[in-house]
Design a protein around this nucleic acid. Sequence first.
DNA 1: TATATAGAATACCAAAAGGTATTATATAGA
DNA 2: TCTATATAATACCTTTTGGTATTCTATATA
Lengths: 106, 106
Amino acid sequence: MQTNVTTFKALGDPTRQKILVLLAGQDMTIGEVVDHFDMTRAGVKKHMKLLEDGHLISVKADGRERINSLNRAGFQTMMQWIAYFDRFWDDKLDALASLVNEEEKE
Amino acid sequence: MQTNVTTFKALGDPTRQKILVLLAGQDMTIGEVVDHFDMTRAGVKKHMKLLEDGHLISVKADGRERINSLNRAGFQTMMQWIAYFDRFWDDKLDALASLVNEEEKE
DNA sequence: TATATAGAATACCAAAAGGTATTATATAGA
DNA sequence: TCTATATAATACCTTTTGGTATTCTATATA
């Protein structure tokens, strides 16, 4: 329950969401990602940094290029955090079920 | 694929995450939530507004009180968005499996 | 070696976000 | 009705964020 704030924050921006969708299609260098946006390389680079901080992408050096790919870790962290609340919905459903059963008895 | 940015943004803050955990324990008025933080009521109210915008909580009026409770909608939206990427991991696993199979043949 | 290309790093700016203080409104209760 | 309480609304301030421009470093390649 700590650094997942960084991960959720990374997803709280439309540009970064689009970058992830792009990378789901294929791994890319920053240059390739930039071609899909009307934004400077430096701007895109900042977004990539935040995605990396949130463990949503990982970078691998290859000569003078840097290959960016999706990183499952961030996604799993989020899923786990959200799953914590499943307990809540289950309780609600249980309570509803009990209520219905009680009424049926009458 | 639109307003979920608001939802993820809402979760990208530690105070708001804590509020959700509190509400998972029990429904609360803003006043009750404030008691758990070293922050003004106005500050907490702003956070609640963002959580509501992201459909993570819903508010029900009761006299002069407002009862806040978790809203499953926001959680489901996020789960669905994240689930979009499952395809990616599956592909990766498939590719890995093919590779292994190829090697076994030799 | 000289030069072009892929990327990193820094400084800077405007807008948005996190927070407080203050004022206003509606309802509960003496 | 008068007063206290639960909340809403607005103005304001400081920090962070999204973005550009500019400079610097490293690696391909003519």
